[in-house]
Computed example of a mutant assay.
Amino acid sequence: MSANGDATKPPTILEKIYAQRQQDVEAAEATPGTRPEEIDAYLQMGLAPPLIPLVPRLRTNPSTATASPSLSLMAEIKRASPSKGDIAPHVNPARQALLYAQAGASVISVLTEPTWFKGSLLDMRLVRQAIDALGPARPAVLRKEFIFCEYQIAEARLHGADTVLLIVAMLTQEQLARLYAYSLSLGMEPLVEVNNAREMTRALEVGAKVVGVNNRNLHDFSVDMGTTSGLVDMVRERDVVLCALSGIQGPEDVRLYKEQGVNAVLVGESLMRAKDTTAFIRELLAWPGA
Protein backbone atom coordinates (compact mmCIF):
# COMPACT_ATOMS: atom_id res chain seq x y z
CA MET A 1 0.00 0.00 0.00
CA SER A 2 1.26 3.51 -0.78
CA ALA A 3 1.96 6.12 1.90
CA ASN A 4 -1.34 7.72 0.99
CA GLY A 5 -3.20 4.53 1.80
CA ASP A 6 -3.94 3.73 -1.85
CA ALA A 7 -3.56 -0.02 -2.39
CA THR A 8 -4.10 0.31 -6.16
CA LYS A 9 -0.96 2.35 -6.83
CA PRO A 10 2.46 0.69 -7.06
CA PRO A 11 4.82 1.73 -4.24
CA THR A 12 7.01 4.77 -4.85
CA ILE A 13 10.78 4.68 -4.38
CA LEU A 14 10.41 6.18 -0.90
CA GLU A 15 7.83 3.56 0.04
CA LYS A 16 10.08 0.73 -1.17
CA ILE A 17 12.98 2.06 0.90
CA TYR A 18 10.74 2.53 3.95
CA ALA A 19 9.47 -1.05 3.72
CA GLN A 20 13.00 -2.45 3.43
CA ARG A 21 14.27 -0.36 6.33
CA GLN A 22 11.44 -1.62 8.52
CA GLN A 23 12.64 -5.17 7.87
CA ASP A 24 16.26 -4.16 8.51
CA VAL A 25 15.42 -2.51 11.83
CA GLU A 26 13.34 -5.48 12.95
CA ALA A 27 16.36 -7.73 12.29
CA ALA A 28 18.72 -5.42 14.20
CA GLU A 29 16.36 -5.17 17.16
CA ALA A 30 16.23 -8.97 17.37
CA THR A 31 20.01 -9.45 17.17
CA PRO A 32 21.92 -9.97 20.45
CA GLY A 33 24.20 -6.99 20.94
CA THR A 34 21.99 -4.50 19.10
CA ARG A 35 18.67 -5.06 20.83
CA PRO A 36 16.88 -1.85 21.92
CA GLU A 37 17.50 -2.42 25.63
CA GLU A 38 21.22 -2.92 24.93
CA ILE A 39 21.51 0.28 22.88
CA ASP A 40 19.72 2.17 25.68
CA ALA A 41 22.05 0.66 28.29
CA TYR A 42 25.13 1.79 26.36
CA LEU A 43 23.69 5.30 26.13
CA GLN A 44 22.95 5.33 29.86
CA MET A 45 26.55 4.27 30.49
CA GLY A 46 27.70 7.40 28.66
CA LEU A 47 29.36 5.49 25.83
CA ALA A 48 28.15 7.83 23.08
CA PRO A 49 30.84 10.34 22.08
CA PRO A 50 30.25 14.03 22.97
CA LEU A 51 27.86 16.15 20.94
CA ILE A 52 28.30 19.53 19.31
CA PRO A 53 25.13 21.63 18.75
CA LEU A 54 23.90 21.77 15.16
CA VAL A 55 22.48 25.29 14.90
CA PRO A 56 25.61 27.24 15.95
CA ARG A 57 27.74 24.98 13.77
CA LEU A 58 25.56 25.67 10.73
CA ARG A 59 25.90 29.39 11.32
CA THR A 60 29.70 29.21 11.07
CA ASN A 61 31.84 28.67 7.97
CA PRO A 62 35.13 30.00 6.51
CA SER A 63 33.36 33.12 5.17
CA THR A 64 31.48 34.06 8.35
CA ALA A 65 33.94 36.79 9.36
CA THR A 66 34.13 38.34 5.88
CA ALA A 67 32.18 41.32 4.57
CA SER A 68 29.99 39.07 2.42
CA PRO A 69 29.51 35.74 4.19
CA SER A 70 28.42 32.85 2.01
CA LEU A 71 26.29 29.83 2.80
CA SER A 72 27.42 26.97 5.00
CA LEU A 73 28.06 23.53 3.58
CA MET A 74 26.57 20.20 4.54
CA ALA A 75 28.92 17.83 2.71
CA GLU A 76 27.61 14.35 2.02
CA ILE A 77 29.27 10.96 1.80
CA LYS A 78 27.24 8.85 -0.61
CA ARG A 79 28.39 5.72 -2.44
CA ALA A 80 25.27 5.27 -4.57
CA SER A 81 21.64 6.36 -4.98
CA PRO A 82 18.40 4.93 -6.40
CA SER A 83 18.41 7.42 -9.27
CA LYS A 84 22.13 7.41 -10.21
CA GLY A 85 23.28 3.93 -9.20
CA ASP A 86 26.93 3.74 -8.18
CA ILE A 87 28.51 7.14 -7.58
CA ALA A 88 31.66 6.36 -5.58
CA PRO A 89 31.34 2.76 -4.40
CA HIS A 90 34.95 2.50 -3.23
CA VAL A 91 35.12 5.78 -1.29
CA ASN A 92 36.99 5.80 2.02
CA PRO A 93 34.44 7.59 4.24
CA ALA A 94 36.97 8.60 6.90
CA ARG A 95 39.37 10.13 4.36
CA GLN A 96 36.52 11.87 2.53
CA ALA A 97 35.24 13.29 5.82
CA LEU A 98 38.65 14.76 6.62
CA LEU A 99 38.75 16.43 3.22
CA TYR A 100 35.32 17.95 3.85
CA ALA A 101 36.23 19.07 7.35
CA GLN A 102 39.53 20.64 6.33
CA ALA A 103 37.80 22.46 3.47
CA GLY A 104 35.36 24.11 5.89
CA ALA A 105 32.19 21.99 5.90
CA SER A 106 29.87 22.71 8.84
CA VAL A 107 28.15 19.32 8.65
CA ILE A 108 29.16 15.95 7.27
CA SER A 109 26.16 13.93 6.16
CA VAL A 110 26.66 10.18 6.03
CA LEU A 111 24.22 7.91 4.20
CA THR A 112 23.75 4.81 6.34
CA GLU A 113 21.08 3.04 4.23
CA PRO A 114 22.65 -0.17 2.83
CA THR A 115 20.45 -1.39 -0.03
CA TRP A 116 20.11 1.61 -2.35
CA PHE A 117 22.83 3.93 -0.99
CA LYS A 118 25.38 1.27 0.04
CA GLY A 119 26.05 2.95 3.38
CA SER A 120 26.33 1.73 6.96
CA LEU A 121 26.54 2.80 10.58
CA LEU A 122 30.21 1.79 10.45
CA ASP A 123 30.76 4.46 7.77
CA MET A 124 29.35 7.07 10.14
CA ARG A 125 31.32 5.83 13.12
CA LEU A 126 34.58 5.97 11.15
CA VAL A 127 33.73 9.46 9.91
CA ARG A 128 33.21 10.58 13.48
CA GLN A 129 36.49 8.98 14.62
CA ALA A 130 38.39 10.59 11.75
CA ILE A 131 37.27 14.14 12.55
CA ASP A 132 37.34 13.90 16.36
CA ALA A 133 40.97 15.06 16.40
CA LEU A 134 39.77 18.44 15.08
CA GLY A 135 38.18 19.14 18.47
CA PRO A 136 35.22 21.50 19.05
CA ALA A 137 35.68 23.08 15.62
CA ARG A 138 34.90 19.79 13.87
CA PRO A 139 31.83 19.53 11.63
CA ALA A 140 28.61 18.12 13.06
CA VAL A 141 27.86 14.56 11.93
CA LEU A 142 24.44 13.89 10.41
CA ARG A 143 22.99 10.41 10.11
CA LYS A 144 21.26 10.60 6.71
CA GLU A 145 18.70 7.86 6.97
CA PHE A 146 15.06 6.91 6.56
CA ILE A 147 14.12 7.19 10.22
CA PHE A 148 10.75 6.03 11.54
CA CYS A 149 11.48 4.91 15.13
CA GLU A 150 13.36 5.87 18.27
CA TYR A 151 15.69 2.89 17.90
CA GLN A 152 17.33 4.38 14.79
CA ILE A 153 17.92 7.67 16.61
CA ALA A 154 19.40 5.92 19.64
CA GLU A 155 21.83 3.89 17.53
CA ALA A 156 22.77 7.06 15.61
CA ARG A 157 23.68 8.81 18.88
CA LEU A 158 25.63 5.80 20.12
CA HIS A 159 27.65 5.69 16.89
CA GLY A 160 28.60 9.38 17.06
CA ALA A 161 25.87 11.34 15.28
CA ASP A 162 25.24 14.92 16.38
CA THR A 163 21.99 15.09 14.43
CA VAL A 164 19.59 12.93 12.45
CA LEU A 165 17.33 13.42 9.45
CA LEU A 166 13.55 13.33 9.87
CA ILE A 167 11.69 13.17 6.55
CA VAL A 168 8.21 14.67 6.88
CA ALA A 169 6.95 12.82 3.78
CA MET A 170 7.36 9.41 5.40
CA LEU A 171 6.03 10.22 8.87
CA THR A 172 2.63 10.95 10.35
CA GLN A 173 2.44 14.15 12.39
CA GLU A 174 2.35 12.09 15.58
CA GLN A 175 5.50 10.20 14.53
CA LEU A 176 7.24 13.42 13.52
CA ALA A 177 6.48 15.14 16.84
CA ARG A 178 7.47 12.07 18.87
CA LEU A 179 10.76 11.47 17.01
CA TYR A 180 11.61 15.17 17.08
CA ALA A 181 11.10 15.23 20.85
CA TYR A 182 13.13 12.04 21.31
CA SER A 183 16.02 13.49 19.29
CA LEU A 184 16.01 16.57 21.51
CA SER A 185 16.01 14.34 24.60
CA LEU A 186 19.35 12.93 23.40
CA GLY A 187 20.70 16.44 22.77
CA MET A 188 20.31 16.33 18.99
CA GLU A 189 18.51 19.05 17.01
CA PRO A 190 17.22 17.15 13.96
CA LEU A 191 17.36 18.24 10.34
CA VAL A 192 13.70 18.14 9.29
CA GLU A 193 13.24 17.56 5.57
CA VAL A 194 10.31 18.93 3.56
CA ASN A 195 9.38 19.07 -0.12
CA ASN A 196 6.32 21.37 -0.26
CA ALA A 197 4.37 24.02 1.66
CA ARG A 198 2.17 21.51 3.48
CA GLU A 199 5.21 19.63 4.76
CA MET A 200 6.89 22.92 5.73
CA THR A 201 3.84 23.80 7.83
CA ARG A 202 4.08 20.42 9.56
CA ALA A 203 7.81 20.92 10.27
CA LEU A 204 7.19 24.33 11.78
CA GLU A 205 4.34 22.96 13.91
CA VAL A 206 6.74 20.66 15.77
CA GLY A 207 9.18 23.54 16.31
CA ALA A 208 11.90 22.56 13.84
CA LYS A 209 14.92 24.89 14.07
CA VAL A 210 16.76 23.40 11.06
CA VAL A 211 14.65 22.73 7.98
CA GLY A 212 15.99 21.22 4.77
CA VAL A 213 14.02 21.65 1.57
CA ASN A 214 14.69 18.67 -0.67
CA ASN A 215 14.66 19.70 -4.31
CA ARG A 216 14.31 16.01 -5.10
CA ASN A 217 10.86 14.45 -4.77
CA LEU A 218 11.51 11.22 -2.90
CA HIS A 219 8.52 9.48 -4.43
CA ASP A 220 9.77 9.69 -8.04
CA PHE A 221 13.29 11.22 -7.53
CA SER A 222 12.64 14.09 -9.95
CA VAL A 223 14.57 17.30 -9.17
CA ASP A 224 13.20 20.86 -9.22
CA MET A 225 15.71 23.47 -8.04
CA GLY A 226 12.85 25.95 -7.55
CA THR A 227 11.40 23.87 -4.70
CA THR A 228 13.60 25.58 -2.09
CA SER A 229 13.05 29.03 -3.61
CA GLY A 230 9.28 28.60 -3.37
CA LEU A 231 9.37 27.94 0.38
CA VAL A 232 11.82 30.61 1.57
CA ASP A 233 9.11 33.09 2.51
CA MET A 234 7.53 30.61 4.95
CA VAL A 235 10.54 30.91 7.28
CA ARG A 236 11.82 34.40 6.49
CA GLU A 237 10.62 35.92 9.78
CA ARG A 238 11.37 32.83 11.87
CA ASP A 239 14.46 31.73 13.76
CA VAL A 240 15.01 28.80 11.40
CA VAL A 241 18.16 27.68 9.60
CA LEU A 242 17.00 26.93 6.05
CA CYS A 243 18.99 24.43 4.01
CA ALA A 244 18.66 23.54 0.33
CA LEU A 245 19.08 19.82 -0.30
CA SER A 246 19.82 18.00 -3.57
CA GLY A 247 20.66 19.09 -7.09
CA ILE A 248 23.29 21.74 -6.23
CA GLN A 249 26.01 21.50 -8.87
CA GLY A 250 27.76 24.84 -9.23
CA PRO A 251 28.37 28.35 -7.80
CA GLU A 252 25.38 29.79 -9.64
CA ASP A 253 23.03 27.59 -7.64
CA VAL A 254 24.59 28.79 -4.39
CA ARG A 255 24.53 32.46 -5.43
CA LEU A 256 20.82 32.27 -6.17
CA TYR A 257 20.00 30.62 -2.86
CA LYS A 258 22.15 33.13 -0.97
CA GLU A 259 20.21 36.01 -2.55
CA GLN A 260 16.95 34.36 -1.51
CA GLY A 261 17.98 33.98 2.13
CA VAL A 262 18.92 30.29 2.29
CA ASN A 263 21.48 29.55 5.02
CA ALA A 264 23.13 26.30 3.92
CA VAL A 265 23.31 23.79 1.09
CA LEU A 266 23.68 20.03 1.21
CA VAL A 267 25.84 18.69 -1.60
CA GLY A 268 26.48 15.02 -2.24
CA GLU A 269 26.90 13.70 -5.76
CA SER A 270 28.83 16.71 -7.10
CA LEU A 271 31.32 16.44 -4.22
CA MET A 272 31.69 12.70 -4.57
CA ARG A 273 32.53 13.10 -8.27
CA ALA A 274 34.84 16.14 -7.89
CA LYS A 275 38.45 15.57 -8.96
CA ASP A 276 39.74 18.17 -6.46
CA THR A 277 37.32 18.18 -3.54
CA THR A 278 38.82 21.15 -1.70
CA ALA A 279 39.00 23.38 -4.78
CA PHE A 280 35.46 22.45 -5.76
CA ILE A 281 34.10 23.34 -2.32
CA ARG A 282 35.81 26.72 -2.17
CA GLU A 283 34.68 27.64 -5.67
CA LEU A 284 31.14 26.39 -5.02
CA LEU A 285 30.69 28.48 -1.86
CA ALA A 286 32.90 31.45 -2.90
CA TRP A 287 34.84 31.02 0.34
CA PRO A 288 38.22 32.72 1.02
CA GLY A 289 40.99 31.00 -0.86
CA ALA A 290 38.79 30.23 -3.88
Rank of each mutant, 00 (worst) to 15 (best):
I153G: 03
A161I: 08
A130Y: 10
N195Q: 15
M188N: 06
A80V: 01
E189N: 15
W116G: 01
S183K: 08
P114G: 06
A88S: 13
I167A: 05
T115W: 10
K118W: 10
E199Y: 11
I108T: 05
E189F: 14
P69A: 12
Y182T: 06
M74K: 13
I167M: 03
I147W: 03
G187C: 09
D132C: 03
G160H: 08
K118S: 06
L165C: 06
A137S: 13
I108W: 11
K84S: 14
G207D: 07
G104Y: 04
L99T: 06
A208W: 02
W116R: 08
F148C: 01
L166G: 01
T163E: 09
L121H: 05
V141W: 03
F146H: 02
A133W: 04
G135D: 11
A140R: 08
G104F: 10
I153D: 01
L122Y: 14
L171R: 02
R125G: 13
P190G: 13
R198D: 15
V107S: 13
L204N: 12
A80T: 00
L191W: 01
L134V: 07
G104P: 06
D123I: 11
G160F: 13
W116M: 03
F117C: 03
V206P: 09
L134N: 06
A103D: 12
E193K: 11
L71R: 14
D132V: 00
K78L: 00
A161N: 08
H90C: 02
A203Y: 03
S70T: 15
A181W: 09
